[in-house]
């Protein structure tokens, strides 16, 4: 069959888009490993820049990990029961709560950070602590965890499962632990990976909320971009990529698995 000109155009545009998204990343990896970016490949490759980055910024890597894990713990504790409560409750009230909780997706991070600083800026030890940044991250990532869990709850017949367990004499809290949680696990796993990825990459809130003692990786990156030579900035970006790419692959594997499960 003769290929439609629209199809050809579509393939060309998609290919260009792929190049546009991919080439800068490859450039960054290359620049982080090259001896001298301006001189090109002839100068050879080295891991020196990565080592320098590690010496200068390893604390931000660890802090980002800690912040991401604390954020994850809090979103699990707050978001998973909250999502189930909203789905159980249903109706206008639940929709209103969901709307409020989802505000941080719509409202720019800068505005949220400003609001947090104006409210808690005076609370010295809280303001100075890593927890302050964590709270900001929870604010921003909570809607993603809740949506992920709610999406799975919408596909399973949670009410009948809950009634089934109740008919066997199980009290409300045990029904939640024994029956609901295991069956929303795909949503929790997908939500967790999203939360970790978002937290590790969060900049808008963190830039405003951090203190010199609570710098995270993206804050360090912004620092490096502004003040360091290109090779160091690139090597630092490389460290960031190494941290998030496993998470992204995880997200896709989980998405693939749930797709297969719902298809069968």
């Amino acid at each position: 069959m003769r290929r439609q000109w629209t199809t050809t155009a579509g393939i060309v545009i998609t290919a260009l888009l792929t190049l546009f998204l991919l080439v800068p990343v490859l450039l960054s990896v290359y620049a982080g490993l090259t001896v001298n970016y301006a001189r090109g490949i002839s100068a050879g490759f080295t891991l020196d820049w990565v080592k320098q980055v590690w010496a200068l910024y390893s604390d931000t890597v660890w802090r980002s990990l800690v912040v991401a894990l604390m954020t994850l713990a809090l979103t699990l504790l707050i978001g998973v029961p909250g999502a189930y409560a909203l789905v159980r409750r249903g109706g206008r009230f639940a929709r209103a709560v969901e709307e409020i909780v989802t505000l941080p997706v719509a409202v720019p991070g800068l505005a949220l950070a400003l609001a947090m600083i104006l409210t808690y800026g005076g609370a010295g030890s809280f303001r100075q602590s890593t927890l302050f940044v964590v709270v900001g991250h929870v604010l921003f990532t909570l809607p993603f965890m809740m949506r992920s869990v709610i999406a799975v709850l919408d596909t399973i017949d949670w009410r009948t499962l809950d009634e089934g367990a109740a008919s066997l004499g199980s009290p409300a809290w045990r029904r939640f632990l024994d029956v609901i949680l295991p069956n929303v696990r795909p949503g929790i796993v997908a939500g967790s990976l999203t939360v970790l990825t978002l937290s590790i990459g969060e900049f808008n809130l963190t830039w405003m909320m951090h203190t010199p003692m609570t710098k995270t990786l993206p804050v360090g990156l912004a620092d490096a971009y502004a003040s360091m030579r290109l090779e160091i900035a690139s090597a630092y970006t490389l460290v960031f990529l190494v941290m998030v790419i496993p998470l992204l692959i995880g997200v896709q594997l989980v998405a693939g698995l749930t797709e297969k499960r719902t298809a069968s």
Binding site: L17, T18, L21, L22, V23, P24, V25, L27, S28, A31, Y37, A38, T197, L198, I200, G201, E202, F203, N204, P218, L221, A222, Y225, L230, A233, S234, T237, F240, V244, I245, L247, L248, I249, Q252
Partner: peptide
């Protein structure tokens, strides 16, 4: 598809830097 969706995880600062590598002074 993975490559097309990778940039989902990049914060704005990193995107800015990638643009510099693409169309900046060097």
């Amino acid at each position: 598809l993975s490559m097309l969706t990778f940039p989902l995880a990049f914060p704005g600062v990193v995107v800015g830097f990638l643009i510099i590598l693409f169309g900046g002074r060097l």
